[in-house]
């Protein structure tokens, strides 16, 4: 076994596991974009909002003497319900009045939503950094010790994150492929007027995708919060989903997932093998954007941008 392989794999796996979080945020963008043509700038803010709701509701419940396990369960139900309520509010107060407006106007509206839920969330839930502990083990463990000298170091939390994200994606895929509502969502994404003509109400579909995107944000926020604590910077990290989208294409669910993995792994590898030796490090923060920019010049529709079916 060549000697460099062990450390290389370690960096790669660490990067892939971090990338899964980018994938989740990007997934939220893609869902909403596909179903309503809205570029939802607020997706990152939704991650922070969901994580804040979760961590604070667990704290409050525990301060009332609810035991830890139950507090976590109720906390999840509460923050999940809050994200669904947010979806209803957005549909009723923003999307419905702005229906048939230009995409740019809806985009501006989502910027408004971003600042609103950033501010409102911190107003009611507080703006400190909070520790989120939902009982996921955070030990560092060594894998494949027999194969590589010293094994490959990974964090258990990252493995949990990977498994959770994988299950979520699988669940969503089944939902989209196999259920009546999922089929309707894909129909709306393809041709919203035709969807209306067969009686699919667009408003319901919007509520559903925003709610699903909200739940995805909750999962991403939970994982991120467990890793780094719940704090304002989460909303910023979520912007890493933008290069992921450029890479993966705005309309492709597999693109969001694979794009996230590429960005996650790419920035860690670049940091270790280019940044540290040549630049004193720190390229991790902008490497993703540069990669996306280069990619944009070569393949503007993204890696998996939906094939446009053209035939007369």
């Amino acid at each position: 076994m060549p000697e460099f392989l062990g450390p290389f794999l370690e960096v790669l796996i660490g990067g892939l596991l971090a990338g899964i979080l980018y994938s989740l945020v990007a997934l939220g963008f893609v869902l909403i974009f596909k179903a309503s043509g809205v570029f939802n700038f607020a997706q990152g803010a939704m991650v922070l909002f969901a994580a804040l709701a979760l961590v604070r509701s667990i704290e409050v419940l525990q301060s009332w003497g609810v035991n830890a396990g139950l507090a976590i369960v109720i906390g999840f139900l509460f923050s999940g319900a809050l994200m669904v309520a947010l979806a209803f509010a957005v549909e009723r107060m923003v999307l419905r009045p702005l229906v048939n407006q230009e995409g740019i106007i809806l985009f501006m509206a989502t910027i408004g939503i971003t600042f609103f839920i950033d501010g409102f969330g911190q107003q009611i839930f507080g703006s400190d950094a909070y520790q989120l502990d939902i009982g996921i083990p955070k030990e560092s463990i060594f894998l494949l010790e027999g194969v590589f000298e010293g094994g490959i170091l990974v964090n258990e939390l990252d493995l949990w994150a990977g498994a959770t994200a994988g299950l979520l994606v699988l669940g969503l895929a089944l939902f989209f492929q196999k259920t009546r509502i999922g089929r309707a969502l894909r129909a709306v994404a393809d041709d919203h007027q035709a969807a209306q003509s067969v009686g699919i109400p667009l408003n319901h579909i919007w509520v559903i995708v925003w709610a699903v995107a909200g739940i995805v944000a909750l999962v991403a926020g939970t994982i991120w919060g467990s890793k780094l604590g719940v704090q304002f910077s989460i909303a910023q990290i979520a912007l890493k989903a933008l290069p992921v989208l450029i890479l993966g294409g705005f309309t492709s669910v597999p693109g969001a997932i694979i794009g996230g993995l590429i960005i996650g792994a790419g920035e860690k590898l670049a940091e270790v093998y280019i940044g540290l030796p040549y630049f004193d490090g720190g390229i991790e923060n902008w490497f993703a954007y540069m990669l996306a920019l280069v990619f944009l010049l070569i393949r503007p529709q993204g890696l998996f941008g939906e094939r446009i079916i053209e035939r007369i």
């Binding site: 089929r183 894909r186 393809d190 041709d191 007027q193 035709a194 969807a195 003509s197 079916i309």
Partner: peptide, 11 residues
């Protein structure tokens, strides 16, 4: 049934 058929192309 709309003019131009409007099937859902990816379905």
């Amino acid at each position: 049934v709309m003019e131009g058929r409007h099937c859902f192309g990816h379905l």
